[in-house]
Write a protein that binds this DNA or RNA. Structure first.
Lengths: 264, 264
DNA sequence: GCAGTTTAGCGTGTGATATACGCAGTTCGG
DNA sequence: CCGAACTGCGTATATCACACGCTAAACTGC
């Protein structure tokens, strides 16, 4: 028995866990008709995490949500870690359709906001282990969409990948400090806003942290504090995210301009 | 009995969990001398997470590491979540001393690399829940250092905070896609490098993901693939992180230049 | 000093968790 | 139409966070 190839068929050396991600682990059809599918299980797990947080995702809870027993899940998923990997890809949903109009900047701007919007619907996303480079269908689809926006510019492919990855790095940070922060806001809105500013005033020693103390004294943290937008805002992670994204796109634009127009 | 103020003393309305973070929860000295301290427990928990990952951090394991029983920890920490909050702050360590030399760009560059370096020593950092705006002493110290680098520029304080926060957003993303990825690399180095490129070649359908398929065909992912530097590299998250950081700093520099020199 | 009070460490118990294992009933290939 | 393969499930085990209460230590007021 091979340990690495699974029973999917003649696919080239695709590891078993990756095959699962792509829905290619259907063995030969025999025995009773399955009442559960991997897609069902993943959907239910995502729903539980969306509703009650990542810690509420237990095999028992997911099974209960599906009206099945706990152990039934293990016929479709080898371990909980495998289920988490499925959730990692499912959380990204599918990138929206969008025809490239030649404006790479607006395209990448919308792309970044799309990634943040998706992660805001699944705030537990940033707490999942990474495990490896992107390999699931949804993650790769997003990567493709980003590269497509940049394609008319005519950069060498490795540079385009590096730029999209850089944007993804920034966006992932926005998710962690923005989308996931919204969970904390929902749990305790008082910890934000004016009380946060007062707390900083009481804690920050002007001798040890002079620059921060000055910002606190200036009242910067009294309003909608650092990276803490009320969730009524749109899908972004707040003004700080916007500003940084603008700067990042500015830097990319300068780089592209420096290269001159594409072609020979 | 107040629920919110703790027993630390006459400190202004500092919530109990924040007081713990700042080491201000020492009650009146009475009873047997404690053989454990919050600092000891936090150190041990961090050591366990560094050695065997976040999932290995159980109260029993941490207590065993300290030669104590499991329940002894609960005299110093109210719950495991509180311990995780302590770890969140401890992971940031203390920012290195650095005298501002007036070059804000070099300063912020080093600052960002410092944050990444620290997180690379504690790759589990990105998997902890955020919970709220930065409030622990180490986290605030880093924020202060970033603001200090920017202070000679003379920006309005809210703008400086927004810029440092934007940089922090980017850096957090670098941690997730770089530092935490190193864990996956250590676990299975084969998943990176040439095998990754071959996998993408087998999975990516040129009709559904044309831009990505072109990049794969160009061999972009055959070498040190996307955001996947061998850990022998320095403390950064790879070439992609570098490139994005440069672009972001370029954008910030352009903004500062646009404002003109400081002062009246 | 001495009594009373406060506190640290610990042992036990409880309920939730992931998951190994084997049984029973179902369905398809031959 | 029969046996093989496969699904769902019940049980068992080990681990987890944590409530509760006990014992003994050390400080405070007398």
């Amino acid at each position: 028995m091979r340990t690495d190839e699974g029973t999917a068929g003649p696919d080239d050396g695709i590891p078993d866990d990756v095959a699962l991600l792509w829905g290619r682990r259907g063995g030969p059809r025999r025995g009773p008709r399955p009442s559960l599918s991997v897609a069902d299980i993943t959907r239910a797990a995502v729903a539980v995490a969306d509703a009650d947080g990542l810690d509420a995702v237990s095999m028992a809870r997911v099974a209960a949500e599906l009206g099945n027993s706990t152990m039934a899940l293990y016929r479709h998923v080898r371990s909980k870690d495998e289920l988490l990997a499925l959730m990692t890809d499912a959380a990204m949903e599918s990138p929206p359709e969008r025809e490239p109009d030649g404006d790479w900047r607006a395209g990448l701007y919308a792309w970044a906001h799309g990634v943040v919007a998706v992660s805001r619907r699944h705030p537990w996303f940033a707490r999942l282990p990474v495990g490896g480079p992107p390999i699931g269908p949804h993650n790769l689809a997003w990567l493709d969409r980003g590269l497509a926006e940049l394609e008319p510019v005519g950069l060498p492919p490795d540079e385009a990948v590096a730029i999209v990855t850089g944007l993804l790095i920034y966006t992932q940070g926005g998710i962690r400090l923005g989308a996931e922060l919204a969970v904390g806001y929902a749990a305790d809105p008082d910890a934000f806003g004016a009380r946060y500013g007062r707390l900083l005033g009481a804690l920050v020693d002007p001798h040890r942290m002079p620059a921060l103390a000055r910002a606190v004294a200036a009242g910067v943290f009294d309003g909608t504090g650092t990276a803490s937008p009320p969730p009524e805002h749109d899908a972004t992670a707040g003004a700080e995210f916007e500003l940084g994204l603008t700067f990042l796109l500015d830097g990319i634009a300068a780089h592209i301009a420096r290269r001159g127009t594409p072609g020979p």
